[in-house]
Nucleic acid binder design. Structure first.
Lengths: 261, 261
DNA sequence: CACGCCTAGTCGTCCGTACGAGGAGCCGGT
DNA sequence: ACCGGCTCCTCGTACGGACGACTAGGCGTG
């Protein structure tokens, strides 16, 4: 049974922060393991001799930090931290596509780093180009696009949402419109139809997630996301794909290497 | 005077979310301009006919999104968004150092983009290399370093903290140890002592700021920061500088360009 | 044995109240 | 004119009570 300390009335921190600190400590020290259930709000209320709202306030703070997640009707549970993925800027090098037996790059990388990887919530559909996408693909507003949405998971926890936009004139009718795009992924298919990829640009930002993203990525209240918008160019410097990704910030480190010129 | 809608009791969203949505809308539409004060909690309580805790809950949500900031004893204010700086990966190209009349790159860029820029809280001192820095500079732990800390401001608002670490054997005794490193900045000085810069690596991440960073960057409760750790290499592939920066996420977009190989 | 119902436990939301602490402005004393 | 205190308004924190919604597990019925 978990042993927690008591409030210190001489401490100048308000009780709810002290309670949050005690729980945080228990989590950091492993007294509360990932996946484990915290004492119920009622139990904490009695233990500390405070009102339920005070306990809730403390738990709200931990939820905000992404340390715990509440499940309605079940309890509050310690969240497992996803492993950190380091994304080097050569991750789309052709060599990585070659030897991977047709497995998606994400799965290969997971295997090496020792975590299980999954892709789900795959949606493929046609849509008209919005302003941002049209501009990056250098297409007229409203051009026909093939859109691939998917969610990536590591150790069963969602860590990234990705949406790819490709001009329908390039991707239409290819395996890119199939749930399984085949060996080497969609970039291999793009190259097969005559667009050899030569360079990428990425725009990186960070912000708080929208309520929708928060839900899809199963995020706490104040866990930020990294946004990466990648544009792929072929040998003729034609933009062939825009990939908009929203990543759980705590699960990623991006690495770039560039010359001083 | 601000006109807000009323609650819709048939709406299945809870009242506090509806109130948050109404306020968010007012901010998005500009009915509540940046810097402007929201109606007080008491006023909102009366307007919507709910308890104060319900209004507070709504405002807490907006604070979580970084849209507003509460100031104890004054009120709740719409946060002003600092101008967005786009940092391209060629921003350290030598050409940018050449024509700038000795002005720091940051100031030149600000002039072009139409905002005022300042640098303050400059601190220069010697220190021993910590683990992370020593590893990146490929030096023994505890090696002597020249450290330059500074804070960048745009339109008077702090947007970035930067700390540069250079081996004392390279930077010691040069203008790098002076408050004003001279035309072209510290990279020009590094090249003058025989280390021509050839490439950089950057590691990008995002997280919530520490209380200290929150204070220095004058951030609200839940505004994330971008962390960029840049390492500069010379022609002999010797690491000559590590620059650790913490940037207000909403003020930055990082741009990278890399080949597919 | 399978299924649905019921109940206890849990979190989500909301009410009303109370006091403390920080900020700003009025206002009188000096 | 200056300064200090007072008061009012603001947000921060806390109390206790109430009901709703969701989950899980026991229990009875078919």
């Amino acid at each position: 049974m978990l042993q927690l300390g008591q409030l210190d009335r001489t401490d100048d921190r308000p009780p709810y922060r002290q309670i949050a600190a005690l729980l945080r400590e228990a989590i950091d020290l492993g007294a509360l393991a990932p996946g484990e259930k915290l004492p119920s709000e009622t139990a904490l209320t009695q233990h500390f001799g405070v009102a339920r709202m005070t306990v809730r306030h403390a738990i709200l703070e931990l939820r905000g930090e992404g340390l715990v997640a509440a499940e309605h009707g079940r309890g509050v549970f310690v969240r497992a931290m996803p492993p950190v993925r380091r994304l080097a800027s050569d991750r789309f090098a052709r060599k990585h596509r070659a030897g991977s037996d047709g497995k998606a790059a994400f799965l290969v990388e997971a295997e090496k780093a020792g975590y299980t990887a999954d892709v789900d919530q795959l949606r493929i559909f046609r849509d008209k180009a919005s302003e941002g996408v049209a501009e990056r693909l250098r297409l007229p507003l409203g051009s026909e696009l093939v859109v691939r949405e998917r969610r990536y998971l590591a150790n069963g926890r969602p860590i990234e949402i990705a949406t790819s936009y490709l001009p329908a004139v390039i991707a239409g009718g290819t395996a890119i419109e199939e749930p399984d795009p085949g060996p080497g992924g969609i970039y291999a298919r793009v190259e097969e139809v005559g667009h050899q990829l030569t360079r990428f640009t990425e725009e990186v930002g960070a912000r708080m997630p929208s309520p929708n993203e928060r839900k899809t990525l199963e995020l706490g209240a104040s866990v930020p996301v990294l946004t990466v918008v990648r544009t792929a160019f072929d040998a003729a410097d034609v933009a062939v794909e825009v990939c908009d990704t929203v990543k759980v910030a705590s699960a990623y480190k991006l690495e770039y290497d560039f010359p001083a010129r």
